[in-house]
Design a protein around this nucleic acid. Structure first.
Length: 604
DNA sequence: ACGCTCGCATCAGGTGGGAAACGG
DNA sequence: CCGTTTCCCACCTGATGCGAGCGT
C-alpha cells in the first residue's frame, strides 16, 4: 500500500519490464497470499528484523503487515513515468493512489528535477495502513548488475524505534533544523564501479493534519497538500561509486528540515515541510554516469527504500515530552539539558544506546585492541541489554499517558535491518506500513526461532560516532581504512562528479565477493550463536521504560531514576564475552564475517 | 629542517526551554 | 482565547587553527 507514487518508487528499467511486471492493484498474486499466510502471525515481526529474500517473500503490499515494508522487489516500477518520459513507467499507482481529494504535493523538486525527473511522483505515500494491498509484483532482481541486489541497512534502527514508539517528532525551523535521529544507512549490493547518486526524499506519510491532544497525536482534518519547496536532499558525496557508498555508512546528519518555503539559501541542504504533518523519509539510489547525470542508456537504475520506523511528524515545538526526553538523552548537542547528567553517565556512559560523539573512543577502549572483537551478536546484546537494565527498568510500572504506542521492547527488534529495494516493481507497500511493533514484540520470541532467520549485527567503526553499533563497520574495516575516511565535500555542487577516495577498494571488495560466496553455506556457526544470544536477550524484561524514566527525571530531579537500575552489566564482562565468542577474531576477519552475513540471508 | 602527533583554545553552529509574538 | 510559531538564551559539540613536542 503504498500510496502513492511510488512508494515504492523505483524506476523500472524498461517500459517492457514495467509492463510485464505491473500488476493491477487488486491483483494480488497467489504467491503473495501464500507468503502472507506464512508470515501472518509473525511475518511482520520477522520482517521487522530480517531480510527475507525476495524470491521467497513475494508478498502483497499489505500495509497491515509489518513485512510490508520489506523490500520486496516487485516487478512494477514505482515511479510513474515522468512527464518527460524519462522513467518508463510503471508506477503502479493503481494500487497506491492517494485518497481522493488529496493530491500529492509536487512542489519542491525543481532543483532536483533537472537531474531526476520524478515525474508524477506524488510525493506522498499514504494511505499507510489501508491494508488493501497493493499488488506486489513478482520479485525481480534489481538491475544493479547481474546478481546484484542492492540492500540497505538502517544503521541506527534501534534508536529510530525508540522514537517511533512514541511517534517521532522533528523540529522544523526557519533556518533549518537537523533531524534527530538522523538517517544513516549502509548499502550493499551495488556495482563497485558504477556511479550512483544517493538522496533522501521526504514525502507525506498520510493525508492528515495532526494535532497533539490529550497526550496523543490525533488527526485533525486534511493535510495541506499544497506544500511547496524542496523535498529532496542529495547526499553531498553524490555522485560516487558503488564501492564508495558501500564502503561506509551513508549519513544524512546534515540534512535540515525547515518550514520556510521561501528560503533561497542552502536549499540543497534543506527539506521544506509543514508543521503537524506526518512524513516518511525515503532513500533513493540512482545509477548515474560519472558526471552525475542519469545514464539513460543503462537499465534501471533507481532503487528506493522506505523504513516505516523513520516516519515522523514535523513540529515547530515538541509536543510529546517523551520525545523531548529521548532527544535530550540521545542527542549530544542537547547534553546541556540532561538532568543528573553526572550521575547518569559518569558511571557507565558506555551503557548508552546512543553514545555521544565523545564516547566513541571509549567504545573502542572497552573492546581493547580488537577492532573486530566486538562481535555483532555481542554488540546486539550490549546495545539491547545494558541500556534497558540501566534505564528501562520501570516503564511497565507506570502507565504512559502521552504515547501513541504502548511501551514495548523494541530492542528485540534492534537487529540489523536490511531492506532490498523496491525497484522494479517494488511494491510500494512498504512505505506506508506503519511499524506494528506490538505483534512483533509480543511474539518476538516465538517468531524468532521459527524462521531461523538471523539478523547479524556488525560492529561498526563509527562512521557516525553517535551510533557505534553499525553493522557494516567491520566489513568496511576489512575492506580498508574506512573509519578515517573524511573526505571533505563541497555541498554546493551535489551533481559534480567526485572522485572516489577509495583507491584500492575495488581490490578488497573483489576479495570479499568470493568470500561471500564461500561463506554462503557456512554460516551455521553464526546462526547458532545468534540464536543463543537472542534467547538470552529475550530473557530480559526490558520493555523500554525509557520514556518513563525520562518522565520521572523530569518530575523528580533528585536523580532517583538512575539509581534503581538492576544489576548492571559491566562493560568489562561484556568485553570478555565478546572476546571469547566473537566471530571477528583475527582468524575470522570482518570481511569474512560480512560474507557470512550475506551468506546467511542468501542461504536461508 | 621537515613531518607528524598531540593538546589546547577558539568559534561556528546545534540543542531544547521558555517567553513573546502571531494568527485564527 | 488558545494553539502555533518565532526568537533568544545558556549550554554543548565539533571543526579548525595553532604551537609544542617528538622522531627522522
Amino acid at each position: 500500500m503504498l500510496g502513492g507514487e511510488g512508494e515504492s518508487s523505483t524506476f523500472s528499467s524498461t517500459k517492457e519490464a514495467a509492463e510485464e511486471t505491473r500488476k493491477s492493484p487488486a491483483a494480488v498474486d497467489v504467491d503473495d497470499l501464500a507468503s502472507r499466510s506464512r508470515y501472518s502471525e509473525h511475518g511482520l515481526q520477522a520482517a521487522d528484523r530480517y531480510y527475507i529474500p525476495p524470491t521467497v517473500s513475494k508478498q502483497s503490499s499489505d500495509t497491515a503487515s509489518p513485512c510490508s515494508f520489506i523490500p520486496y522487489t516487485s516487478s512494477g516500477a514505482v515511479y510513474a513515468p515522468s512527464s518527460a518520459g524519462r522513467y518508463p513507467s510503471s508506477l503502479h499507482l493503481g494500487s497506491v493512489l492517494p485518497p481522493a481529494g488529496f493530491s500529492p504535493p509536487t512542489a519542491g523538486r525543481s532543483h532536483f528535477s533537472s537531474a531526476y525527473q520524478l515525474g508524477q511522483n506524488p510525493g506522498c505515500i499514504y494511505p499507510p495502513y489501508t491494508g488493501s494491498g497493493s499488488a506486489l509484483g513478482n520479485m525481480t532482481l534489481p538491475s544493479g548488475g547481474p546478481g546484484l541486489r542492492p540492500q540497505v541497512y538502517l544503521c541506527n534502527r534501534p534508536l529510530w524505534l525508540k522514537f517511533h514508539r512514541h511517534q517521532t517528532e522533528m523540529i522544523i525551523t526557519k533556518q533549518g533544523r537537523r533531524m534527530f535521529p538522523f538517517l544513516s544507512f549502509n548499502i550493499a549490493g551495488l556495482s563497485l564501479t558504477a556511479h550512483y547518486n544517493v538522496f533522501v526524499e521526504v514525502v507525506l506519510a498520510d493525508p492528515n493534519h495532526w494535532r497533539f491532544q490529550g497526550g496523543k497525536w490525533v488527526t485533525c482534518g486534511k493535510a495541506d497538500n499544497s506544500s511547496q519547496g524542496n523535498k529532496v536532499y542529495i547526499h553531498p558525496e553524490s555522485p560516487n561509486t558503488g564501492a564508495h557508498w558501500m564502503r561506509q555508512e551513508i549519513s544524512f546528519s546534515k540534512l535540515k528540515l525547515t518550514n520556510n518555503k521561501g528560503t533561497s539559501h542552502n536549499t540543497s541542504q534543506m527539506i521544506v515541510l509543514q508543521s503537524l504533518h506526518k512524513y516518511q523519509p525515503r532513500l533513493h539510489i540512482v545509477e548515474v554516469t560519472e558526471e552525475g547525470v542519469e545514464d539513460i542508456n543503462s537499465d534501471i537504475k533507481t532503487q528506493s527504500f522506505t523504513f516505516p520506523e523513520t516516519q515522523f511528524i514535523a513540529v515547530t515545538a515538541y509536543q510529546n515530552t517523551d520525545i523531548t526526553q529521548l532527544k535530550i538523552d540521545h542527542n549530544p548537542f542537547a547534553k546541556g539539558f540532561r538532568d543528573n547528567y553526572d550521575s547518569m553517565y559518569t558511571a557507565s556512559e558506555n551503557d548508552r544506546l546512543t553514545p555521544s560523539p565523545t564516547d566513541s573512543p571509549r567504545a573502542h577502549q572497552i573492546v581493547p585492541g580488537a577492532r573486530y572483537t566486538m562481535q555483532p551478536l555481542f554488540q546486539e546484546q550490549f546495545v539491547n541489554n545494558l541500556p534497558q537494565n540501566r534505564y528501562y527498568n520501570s516503564e511497565r510500572a507506570v502507565p504512559q499517558t502521552n504515547s501513541l504506542l504502548s511501551p514495548q521492547s523494541e530492542d528485540g527488534a534492534s537487529q540489523r535491518w536490511f531492506v532490498t529495494s523496491m525497484q522494479q516493481g517494488g511494491n510500494s507497500t512498504n512505505t506506508n506500513n506503519k511499524l506494528d511493533l506490538t505483534p512483533y514484540e509480543t511474539e518476538y520470541s516465538s517468531s524468532l526461532l521459527p524462521y531461523s532467520i538471523k539478523s547479524l549485527s556488525m560492529h561498526t567503526s563509527h562512521a557516525l560516532s553517535y551510533y557505534p553499533d553499525s553493522p557494516f563497520s567491520t566489513m568496511s574495516a576489512g575492506w580498508g581504512s574506512r573509519a578515517p575516511y573524511q573526505r571533505k565535500v563541497t555541498a554546493s555542487l551535489p551533481w559534480s562528479p567526485r572522485p572516489s577516495p577509495t583507491a584500492g577498494f575495488s581490490e578488497d571488495s573483489d576479495k570479499v565477493k568470493p568470500q561471500i560466496e564461500e561463506e554462503l553455506n557456512g554460516s551455521g556457526g553464526l546462526i547458532s550463536t545468534w540464536t543463543e544470544t537472542q534467547s538470552a536477550a529475550l530473557s530480559f524484561e526490558k520493555a523500554d521504560s525509557y520514556a518513563l524514566a525520562c518522565k520521572r527525571r523530569r518530575l523528580s530531579l533528585n536523580g532517583s531514576s538512575t539509581a534503581d537500575s538492576p544489576a548492571d552489566i559491566k562493560c568489562e564482562d561484556l568485553v570478555s564475552v565478546a572476546t571469547n565468542s566473537s566471530p571477528y577474531s583475527k582468524e575470522n576477519p570482518p570481511s569474512k564475517a560480512m560474507a557470512a552475513y550475506y551468506s546467511f540471508y542468501t542461504a536461508t
